[in-house]
Design a protein around this nucleic acid. Structure first.
Lengths: 218, 218
DNA sequence: ACTTTAATGACAGTTACTGCCAACAAACTG
DNA sequence: CAGTTTGTTGGCAGTAACTGTCATTAAAGT
């Protein structure tokens, strides 16, 4: 309907979304490293910008607050779950699907990023500003859950029941992620704790989701 | 064990917690009013302090950020639920208890405060900083739920299952509060929407809490 | 009155961010 | 190639949210 692309495009084209994403992710990694090394409060925006090799001005153009610099990395982690959720085949229960398909570390990315993410999750318990950013982030991810669940339950996404299920799922994920971060603190990420994590998540979701088993949902 | 009160107390005594609370609540009311009138970004700390009749310095001593000024008011709302939860008698299911005992507006406080709280909840959808403060606040309230549920389920509060149930309950409460704020936007708080809210909350909690019915819990 | 302890207010200082504009980069046009 | 157009970046000044410090005042006891 709109005549998109019809205008013969003059001047420099805007950078692609992927490139933007890469830049943000790059900054995010440096920021998280600095946060972990010296604490959030002791890390200045100027420092982050220098480490990432950009000017402070562009840093603030990419992120509204310095705490939000953790977003791209954390989003990668949440994406692991989102992917699995999207791949949830009809007819099979959510819990059993998770048990077979959810491998949080492998899908998400390189091991270093995973460690960094876990470090952030641990930091959120002591740094209030970071906790706030973390919670906002998780809530944004809830939207995705809402969409998937809405389709699953055959209701519009804005439905109260759908939102309740999505919020519930999100809450369970948060506690499970927290527990996972706690248990991997000393040792690295062994296949054991990974399995425990998946099992714990599946178990917990089984506790609170009645209507999402395979038999209930058309 | 400690020789508390043994030292014959010299000098001016520190102000009581109630008085502190009153001061914070007073500031909170002014802050919320200003936020609602002109938006969060357009309201400065100096303005809040002037409206509340204190110096800016003491404002920052009471609240770490200007968004956190909404805390005392919002906490009052959450307290309404906490009270009901604490009054939850053994042997009776949580849902039926809520259906009979939960009257969010009446317990909490004066009608003006309730309207202010709802205004804040609505504002959180457009003001990111406010949303962050709101989410942090709600998560702090989760601790209380954890304690009550832990006692109920006969487990230590740090247990994974207890935390899952508490987080779930918290998530449901959030969605319900959100819906309540949305439905009361034009009209005031009629007994009708109030009843709908209670019913909706009870229904939603029934959906996601299996183990908290009267028969399941000893 | 004098001491002691706690709260407040005033003021300077830091820093997270914002607006603004000049400089530069990447496309197309002649 | 220069010239134009459009988008991105960087520098610099400014604002406002806080923080540290200290003098002043308030509320108690002796």
């Amino acid at each position: 309907m709109v005549d998109s692309g019809r205008a013969p495009r003059r001047g420099r084209p805007p950078v692609s979304d992927e490139q933007r994403g890469r830049q943000r992710l790059d900054i995010s990694r440096h920021a998280v490293r600095l946060f972990a090394e010296q604490g959030v409060a002791a890390t200045s925006g100027e420092q982050i910008a220098r480490a990432a090799g950009v000017s402070e001005r562009t840093l603030w153009r990419c992120f509204p607050t310095k705490e939000s610099c953790v977003e791209p990395l954390l989003t990668k982690m949440l994406d692991a779950f989102r992917t699995v959720l999207h791949a949830w085949p009809p007819g099979v229960g959510l819990i059993e699907h998770l048990r077979t398909a959810y491998q949080p570390v492998l899908d998400s990315s390189s091991g270093e990023d995973v460690e960094a993410v876990l470090a952030v999750v641990r930091m959120t318990h002591d740094e209030p500003a970071l906790r706030a950013a973390y919670l906002v982030l998780r809530e944004r991810a809830e939207e995705t859950f809402t969409e998937v669940l809405a389709e699953r339950m055959g209701m519009p996404p804005a439905t109260f029941e759908v939102r309740v299920q999505a919020a519930t799922m999100n809450a369970v994920l948060k506690v499970a992620a927290d527990e996972f971060a706690r248990e991997t603190v000393g040792r690295g990420i062994t296949p054991e704790v990974l399995k425990d994590h998946r099992e714990q998540l599946a178990h917990a979701l089984g506790l609170v989701t009645r209507r999402l088993s395979g038999t209930d949902v058309g």
